[in-house]
């Protein structure tokens, strides 16, 4: 490997960034799908949907942590998806970089908002 890894034969891939992100997108998708089903079951099995019942569900620390973990999975998933779309459709490197940075800032802002909602009191 070492002696022919030069010039046109240089191996330019192999860090597995693509595979890692592809797999992460699938794993986060499964996490979100499971959470969605649990939330829907909670929603439809509550006989009387009121503020008390809804707020009580979100008052448990474990549920806050689980919800936050799902939000982080969502933001990671969305980052990979939006990045893929930008790589496919936005060819000028400068514009793509600006949009990718904007995407990251957008998602970090959303993460802060999500944390504030969950741990307000």
């Amino acid at each position: 490997m070492a002696d022919n890894n030069i010039g046109p034969k240089r191996l330019v891939v192999g860090a597995h960034y693509g595979l890692r992100d592809w797999l992460a997108q699938r794993a986060t998708a499964v996490v979100m799908a499971v959470y969605t089903v649990i939330l829907l079951v909670c929603f439809f099995t509550s006989t009387n949907f009121s503020y008390q019942g809804w707020a009580a569900l979100f008052s448990h620390q474990w549920f806050k942590v689980a919800t936050f973990a799902v939000f982080m999975a969502l933001f990671f998933h969305a980052w990979i998806g939006v990045r893929d779309a930008l790589m496919d459709y936005v060819k000028p490197v400068g514009v793509r970089l600006v949009l990718q940075v904007a995407t990251i800032l957008w998602l970090i802002g959303c993460a802060g908002y999500a944390a504030q909602i969950l741990w307000r009191n």
Binding site: Y51, W54, A78, W106, G109, Y113, I117
Partner: peptide, 30 residues
Amino acid sequence: HRISGLFLFLMLPFVLFLLDSSLLSEGTFD
């Protein structure tokens, strides 16, 4: 799949606002 994903991405703050209002207090819930 792409269009719906991008739409959900752009609407994230709105969804968080809905969750925020639903949990903040009984007043904001109403």
